[in-house]
């Protein structure tokens, strides 16, 4: 059985949000919540300031905390390793959200059930690629069977040094990153950093989150 995973090459991500938009369109994700988004993280200071783009989504962990947390058995791992939520069994207790160290699960404000990235299970079951992978103009996302040595993802994993987000959480994520600039370390440890591009007037969270990776650099 395949062990599906994703490799994201941060060297080529341009933060265009094509993946986020494709995911929104694929699942009709409501406003204000995301299954897949891109975080912007700033590092250093002028004249050596850098901005990193880090796509984040459910990591479909080998040791998934959400899977162990769900009291109703609504979260399951399908045969190819993708972790999905059975909407009918979800009682919205939000323990999965509390257990996930990546903040990848949200409560759908319209359907009132927990939701998250499924690696587009409905597409991959038919041999198609996830919507975000197809939409990426830079081809920085590679999806496939990690156990198949001939697959593109397995070859690229072998050829590059890869890392995962929050390895210390011990969740063994199946979403891996090529991150030579170590941008992942700048994502805040607890929760997910706010996307500064989403800043809107009167939203204090986004204003704080912009500087989350560098608490000493609060706006004056």
């Amino acid at each position: 059985m395949a062990r599906l995973g994703m490799l994201i090459d941060l060297r080529t991500c341009i933060g265009c949000h094509a993946c986020s938009v494709a995911c929104k369109a694929e699942f009709d994700v409501p406003l204000g919540v995301f299954r897949d988004t891109v975080k912007y993280v700033e590092e250093g200071k002028y004249p050596k300031a850098t901005r990193h783009f880090i796509p984040i989504l459910c990591n479909h962990c080998e040791e998934a905390p959400c899977l162990k947390a769900c009291p109703t058995g609504a979260i399951i791992r399908v045969e190819n390793g993708e972790i999905v939520i059975n909407k009918g069994d979800c009682n919205v207790n939000r323990f999965c959200m509390a257990a996930c160290p990546y903040g990848a699960i949200y409560v759908d404000p319209e359907e009132h059930v927990a939701q998250k990235c499924t690696f587009c299970e409905h597409r991959t079951a038919q041999g198609m690629q996830p919507a975000c992978v197809e939409a990426c103009p830079m081809r920085c996302r590679i999806f496939g069977d990690l156990d198949d040595p001939a697959s593109t993802i397995a070859q690229k994993v072998r050829a590059n040094t890869t890392t995962v987000w929050k390895p210390e959480a011990g969740t063994k994520p199946r979403v891996m990153y090529i991150d030579p600039k170590e941008a992942l370390k700048h994502l805040v440890n607890e929760g997910i950093q706010v996307d500064p591009r989403a800043q809107m007037a009167g939203n204090p969270h986004t204003a704080q989150g912009t500087y989350a990776a560098h608490p000493g650099k609060q706006p004056q």
Partner: peptide
């Protein structure tokens, strides 16, 4: 850390 507000909100 003050000023470090994670998203999403604490679920409970």
């Amino acid at each position: 850390i003050p000023g470090l507000q994670p998203l999403p909100e604490v679920p409970w």
